[in-house]
């Protein structure tokens, strides 16, 4: 496997990559990977899409308010919403986006400010009332609140994060949005004992955040390939450990707000090797299918069941989502 790692992480930018990186302000190695992943014309579309700021969006909390009523109330305050077609409760903020973090409706917990693609992992996880659900990297709480929203506060949620400051936000958002059926733990999810079993696990893994360049353009240059190596090794350990906590026939959704193979297909190929009971499952999620080969490396072919959402496809942030079932 050392050979595979070498092929993936040894990125020598071509002249084309250097030219595009210069034009769009990226580190050349980042663009080189896009050229290896996508047809050249699509790389242009991706780089162009990343130049446009991401339109703000919210997730309506239908546990506390009917979404139609929220839309009307915000409309009266000059905030115009438009439904995001591929999400259940998502709305683009067409007008008045500067206010959305301060409105009384926000304080009352009627919505959460969240990127459109970021709403998809929980929809794919599809938590049900009565299920034991783990949100393994939960802060600041977007997906934890969404899990309890989907189950009308009736799933038993264990939300874990190790960051002291961000965990305060997690608790605050759960409180603001009216959810009580949760336990919050501040700890490293790698230390969670394997005796604990869950019906559903969400691992929205810590990642390099290449998918959110539209929100934070500094990410065009701020990361190195060494960062990716570190992150992918952490992600492999997380998936491998947490996969032991899924009940038989239970589900884990792995997601990242990054689009490279290093933190996605490569991580999952390694995790599938470690745990043969894991089986990728096809989903209705939008986006392109997972890659099965890249730069001369063959990934587990079942990973084509995963989804990669690129910013130019649906005018969102970039995301990768994969649903895994534990079959034994």
């Amino acid at each position: 496997m050392g050979g595979i790692e070498e092929k993936i992480f040894a990125v020598k930018p071509t002249d084309k990559a250097v030219e595009l990186a210069h034009k769009y302000g990226y580190s050349p190695w980042i663009v080189e990977r896009y050229l290896r992943m996508l047809p050249e014309e699509e790389v242009y579309l991706l780089l162009e899409a990343n130049e446009k700021p991401l339109k703000k969006s919210i997730r309506c909390n239908d546990y506390l308010i009917k979404c139609g009523e929220l839309k009307e109330r915000l409309g009266e305050k000059g905030v115009i919403l438009r439904k995001i077609p591929f999400t259940r409760h998502g709305y683009y903020v067409e007008r008045g986006s500067d206010k959305i973090g301060y409105l009384h409706e926000y304080m009352l917990g009627y919505y959460y400010i969240q990127g459109p693609a970021s709403m998809i992992p929980v929809e794919i996880l599809d938590p049900r009332p009565g299920e034991d659900v783990l949100d393994a990297a939960a802060a600041p709480g977007g997906k934890s609140t969404q899990i309890l929203q989907h189950t009308k506060d009736k799933a038993h949620l264990l939300a874990i994060d190790k960051n002291r400051e961000r965990i305060k936000s997690l608790r605050s958002h759960l409180s603001r949005m009216g959810f009580n059926n949760h336990i919050i733990i501040r700890m490293d999810n790698l230390k969670l004992p394997t005796e604990y079993q869950f019906d559903k696990i969400l691992l929205d893994a810590p990642c390099s955040g290449e998918g959110i360049i539209r929100k934070d353009p500094s990410r065009k240059k701020s990361r190195t390939i060494e960062d990716l190596k570190y992150l992918s090794s952490l992600q492999i350990r997380m998936v491998s450990h947490l996969s032991r906590l899924i009940r038989e026939d239970g589900v884990m959704v792995y997601s990242t707000c990054t689009i490279g193979v290093e933190e996605n297909e490569y991580v999952l190929t390694k995790a599938l090797e470690h745990n043969p009971c894991l089986e990728p499952v096809d989903t209705e999620a939008p986006g392109s299918r997972g890659l099965t080969s890249y730069s001369g490396v063959e990934f587990d072919p079942r990973l084509e069941r995963c989804r990669r959402i690129l910013p130019h496809q649906l005018n969102t942030e970039g995301f990768f989502i994969c649903k895994l079932r534990r079959k034994c």
Partner: peptide
Amino acid sequence: YSINESLLTRVKQLSYHGINPYSAGLY
């Protein structure tokens, strides 16, 4: 906190492993 039976089972399980929740149930 007011903690329902299902969460309480998990809290006790965590406590057995020396893990103290940051919060649990209805604050």
